[in-house]
């Protein structure tokens, strides 16, 4: 199975780049506030769709009440929580 943390961080970096933003590698930790890394709601939607392709699940569909993460750490936690839904 893919390493969730790496997948999330790599996708985050590449989508931010796609959106014309550059994330300082040094700041890319669990405390990084998603809204401050240039990722708007559209960028966030693209990130979730991209991760669904990579990991095989979308935690925001699986949650009873979607809770949208504020920081990178919360985002990774959301994916970790539903990792038993991942494609083999």
């Amino acid at each position: 199975m893919k390493n969730i943390r790496n997948s999330v961080l790599e996708s985050l970096e590449s989508i931010a780049k796609q959106q014309g933003q550059t994330i300082d590698g040094n700041l890319l930790d669990d405390e990084l506030v998603l809204a401050e890394c240039g990722l708007d709601s559209l960028g966030f939607a693209i990130l979730v769709a991209e991760l669904e392709i990579q990991l095989g699940y979308d935690p925001f569909v699986l949650m009873d009440e979607p809770h949208y993460p504020k920081t990178t750490g919360e985002l990774i936690a959301a994916y970790e929580r539903f990792k038993n839904h991942a494609r083999g």
């Binding site: 939607a45 693209i46 979730v48 769709a49 569909v61």
Partner: peptide, 10 residues
């Protein structure tokens, strides 16, 4: 359109 749980469609 590709269905998206966040934006409806992308």
């Amino acid at each position: 359109g590709k269905p998206s749980s966040v934006a409806g469609y992308l």
